[in-house]
Structure formats: structure tokens, C-alpha cells
Amino acid sequence: MIGATTVLMPSRSNSVLSRIDPRFRILAALTLIITAVSFSSWQPLAMLVLTAVIFTGFAKPDWPRTLKMVLAMDGFILVMLLMLPFTVPGQVMFTFWGFDASYQGLFQAVLIALKANAAILVLIALVGGMDAILLGRGLQGIYVPAKLVTLFMFTIRYIDLLRREYLRLRVAMRARAFVARNNRHSWRSFGYLLGMLLVRSHDRSERILWAMKCRAYHGHMHFGSLPRFSPQDYLFASALILFTAALIGLEVACPPLI
């Protein structure tokens, strides 16, 4: 749960980016990702990846963790990337065990890998350094529905509690000599465990609502308003627009990969 913990810590980072308004940072990340996803040549994507890496260096110099996050995401799409050359028809590159690998498939895989990495790096660079409260406020600031933001805040707060409840129950099971095997008894016991977690969470959610009502909650979370935009926010926005324009220019100038 290292991830959840860092998100909860009030950020103390003093990098250039952390002084930019969270609304601008979230919108900037969205803009860049949506632009990147629609590209079809590799040059602007490579440039975006490179820039995002440089900015990550500015915003969050915790390289081992960042690398782990990127690799975790790459792990998800690795199989798909390996399969693509074999599943997309086109000009044959080589034959492996009777299966033809096509150039078109390879290019598609390269593009998807670049886009996915660009997206996650942009997110790490621009949004990754925010703590939960700031992110909540930023999301509310760009008019994400309050219900979603509240849900998001609760998830962050209670996911660890749920995990600890699960671990406690697991330990209690193990203390009574339970060993997970692939048999009826094991599956039934896991079913009970999950069921118990659900029931407990439901009861807990009720008690939390009571506790909130006792503190005069009427269905509206107060995140507080964000400070007014400063000149450096506008400077950041202008730089971002120029950069996006440059990327689009590069996309138009370079031939599409597929």
C-alpha cells in the first residue's frame, strides 16, 4: 500500500510544476494524452515521451518508484504487443513456427507502446506529485461531479482499512490451520471470507455515515476553494498550448507509420 500512502501525504515538493494550479495540471495532462492518442507517426510520440521523462525528473525524482510504475503498466500490455505482429495481416516480416509476423502489426505495436508510455509518463509528471486533497480539489475545480470526487476520496481512505480487515481475517483463518488448496473447502472458506468482508464493509459504511451525520453532514463535502490563477499558471498554459501545437505540427510533417 505504499502507493496509497504517498497519495495521502500532503505534498512537500517544491518543484516548478508543483506550484502550478492543480486544475491546469489535470487539464494539461488530459490535453496531452488525448492529442497523443490520436497521433499516427512515431516522431511526435517519441518527443512527448522524452519531454515527459524530463518533466518527471523535475517533478518527482523518485526514479525507482517511477520506473516500477511504468514497468507495471507495460507488463499489462506486453502480451498484446507480442501478439500484434502475428495477428495483423500485412507484408510478412518473418515466419515463426508457421505463423507470419507482419510489419504492419509491428508498427501498430510500436505505436501502442509509445502512446501508453507517453500517457503514463505525462500523468506521473503532471498529476503524480499531487496529494489526495489537492487532486480532489483540482477535480472539483474542473467540474468533475462532486459525487465522483467524494467517492474517490473515500476509496483512498478506506482501501487500506479493507485490506487490513482482509488480512486480519486471513490470519484468523490461518491460526485455525487453514491452508489454501484447490478444493471445495478452500473455495467455500474464501467465499465466506469475501462475504464477510462485504457485510462488514456495508456495516462500516453505515457507521461512517452516522458519524458524518453526527458532525452535521448534509451531503456536501467541503474541499475548500482553490487560490486564484497566478501569472505562472497562464505561462504554463501558454507553454503547453505551444508544445501541443508543435507536436501536432510534427505529426503533420512526418509520414504516418501505418
Binding site: D131, I133, M153, R157, R204, R207, I208
Partner: peptide
């Protein structure tokens, strides 16, 4: 409340 985890629901 009996269980303080029920009462503390904000991150900080």
C-alpha cells in the same frame, strides 16, 4: 464512536 476508524474518514 466505539471504533475510531468509523469516525475518521478524511485522509489527514
Amino acid at each position: 464512536f466505539q471504533d475510531s476508524d468509523d469516525q475518521l474518514f478524511c485522509p489527514t
